[in-house]
Amino acid sequence: MTQQHASYGAVHGPPTGEITRRSFMRRVLGVGVGLLSLEFLGGTLAFLWPNLTEGLGSQITLGSADDINNQAPEWQNGLPFVYNQANLFFVNVPAAKARVAENSGGQVTSDVSLPVPDPGADVDPDIAPEDRSVMALWRKCPHLGCQVPQLCDRSEWFECLCHGSKYTVIGEKRDGPAPRGMDRFEVLVENGVYIVDTRQVISGPPPTVMTFDKRTASDITEHCVG
């Protein structure tokens, strides 16, 4: 090729497949600038990543079971404790199940073995987290983020005002447009004191999960919403 006379309109440069020093340098430069841009992007993301030290997004100490009972006496009767600073429902699971069973007119039966929250049992590694006696449910509706109000006293469900999503007392979705059950957080127990770890949000169960309170929306005659 090099012997032939260069003609009009010919591509100046090497034929495809051949790397000259010039094209090699150009590619190195391109890759270098690309890498630099990626590093800049990554650094920017890291720099701007939220750095949370308090409130939702950190570890929150709720207090012992007695502390909570003192603040909200209905907690031991099954009404979820509303912890406003971190937008949580702290559910006393056995008591809540008993409460629902009692108020459902026989539609729900509860076979709860733990009578009251037992911080000792809650740290037992043999008990799966979902079977422990307390739950920290996030009050943010997984549909579009509205705040979920306190348990509706007619249906014993959480009924979101915004778009009518409905959840059982342990956060399983039963009705409405939400894609899953209520999101929740891990609860740790240290020396009998409950600590909610809100650094990691645990997504709620899929809408098909039914472990407790298997009523459908039509089973219930009166709702608070819709």
Partner: peptide
């Protein structure tokens, strides 16, 4: 959820 966390500067709408 991560991108929402980044956009919101936190888990929920707040000072961040």
């Amino acid at each position: 959820n991560e991108s929402a966390f980044f956009m919101l500067g936190g888990i929920e709408v707040g000072q961040g």
